[in-house]
Amino acid sequence: MRTFAIAMLLCLAPVLVNAAEPATPARKDGDPAVRQLLDKLEYKYEIDEEGDYRLTFGLGDDKDARSQLVYVRSPVETYGSHKVREIWSPGYVSTTDEFPADVANRLLEATQQSKLGAWAKQGRYAVFVVKVAADASAEELDDAVDAALRSADEIEQELTPGKDDF
């Protein structure tokens, strides 16, 4: 019996070591480190009820140009020695809790083509998520925000032609 218990512990050890830690709780007034970076980049933002930073970007010069919503999340996620922050941008909303198969497949294809970030399902929403080091520089955050908003807007245009909901 003792040999079995030791064998089970050895089998489970990689699982226990690789377990991600829960996110640090978000501050309702937003993470001050994020605020400092966004201010340095001269981005306009609001802080939502969860303490995340909500930014809206205009894409184009004319008054009918598209816009895109981006969230810079305040919580920091930890996995082993990695500490990351997420940047989200919605690109699609389903009419039901399930994505149609063709939409889900297109999002998987877009993830494969992406250089930075991936598509994720958040309820009825497809959001493009870029994960950066929690201590990312202003330039790295700027790149992540740009990747998120451009990827999300491209998919929104493709999957919902003529709409600009985000």
Rank of each mutant, 00 (worst) to 15 (best):
K163F: 03
V72F: 02
R73I: 00
A147W: 11
P90L: 06
P32D: 09
E42F: 05
V103F: 07
T24H: 02
G80R: 09
Q157W: 02
A7Y: 09
A136M: 05
S137V: 01
R35D: 04
V15K: 05
I47K: 04
T3W: 09
R27S: 13
V93F: 08
D102I: 03
Q36R: 14
G162L: 08
T3H: 13
D48I: 08
A20H: 09
P90W: 01
L38D: 11
A5V: 12
L69S: 12
T3A: 14
T111H: 01
T24P: 00
V103S: 08
E49L: 11
S137T: 15
P25H: 08
A5E: 15
D48H: 01
V17A: 15
L41H: 06
V127F: 02
L37Y: 00
P90Q: 10
G91A: 07
L141T: 03
V127L: 07
V132M: 00
A13R: 07
P25K: 04
T96L: 07
L69T: 13
D143M: 00
E140M: 10
T96W: 09
A104R: 13
A20Y: 01
E42K: 14
W119I: 04
A33P: 00
G58S: 15
Q157H: 09
F128N: 03
V103C: 07
R27Y: 06
R35Q: 15
A144Q: 12
Y79E: 05
G51A: 11
A5Q: 14
E98W: 11
A126Q: 01
A33K: 06
P161D: 10
E139M: 02
L10T: 13
G60I: 07
A5P: 05
E98V: 09
H82F: 07
E158Q: 12
I6Y: 07
V70Y: 02
A118T: 11
G30S: 08
E158R: 11
R54Y: 08
R73V: 00
E21V: 03
V72I: 07
G60S: 15
L37P: 00
R27H: 06
V130Y: 12
P100H: 02
P32Q: 12
A138W: 07
E50Q: 15
P161W: 04
E139Q: 13
A147I: 05
A101I: 11
S151M: 11
G117M: 01
T78S: 15
A133P: 01
A65N: 15
L69E: 03
A110I: 00
F99W: 05
A144L: 05
A138E: 15
K40F: 03
T95L: 13
K163A: 12
Y79K: 13
P90S: 06
Y53V: 00
L116R: 13
P25Y: 02
E46A: 12
S94H: 06
N105K: 08
T96Y: 08
R124F: 04
W119H: 08
